[in-house]
Amino acid sequence: MSVFGTVFKRDIRHAVRQSADSLTVVAFFAIATVLFPFGIGPEANVLARIAPGVLWVTALLAALLSLDRLFAIDYEDGTLDQLVLSGQPLSMVVLAKITAHWMTTGVPLLVISPVLAVTLNMPKDGYLPLLAALLLGTPTVSLIGGIGAALVLGSRRGGVLLSLLVLPLYIPILIFGTMSVESALTGQTPGPTLMVLAGFAVLAVTFSPWATAAALRQAVE
């Protein structure tokens, strides 16, 4: 608990102080979503049809934007070296940082998503599955993103490279996230697809802190 708690509290405190960062991510989510009606046309039924997919894709891109700084600050000021050398279980540190990251970016995205769903004219039946899918999916997004963020530390082209590494890995989440909402809209139960998302989350919690820790270790080596 101690390592996890210390790092988690520190990161949350930092995020509260720099709350503009989280707001920027939410603003990006909103703007990127609002672009679609301009690109596709304002027909209500067309927008309703694409709403689940659009919300998921833009949420993934917004989360991706925030990943850049996940370890970068600690890497630059040397905190990361200390954490690695301290002998504390690094995967716990990673898990704490990612939990903090999810609470300060994933949760705000989740909160704003119903409002954006309204602008896309999504039918009422989709709201609860959308929230459930985002709740189960965004932790995986942060966990997988953590691996990418650790891998690109100190590289020449961080941000763009990160998206190339991480976005292909997001495809399963996108598929099942969108499908959860769509199945509800077509009168089916979203249960099975939500279960798959939960399964992904369990897998990601088990493996990705470990992979991220390995990536961090080689970054400061």
């Binding site: 490279l161 190339l164 292909p168």
Partner: peptide, 9 residues
């Protein structure tokens, strides 16, 4: 991604 990452440092 593999090629780009290997070449980025």
């Amino acid at each position: 991604g593999y090629l780009a990452l290997g070449d980025a440092f």
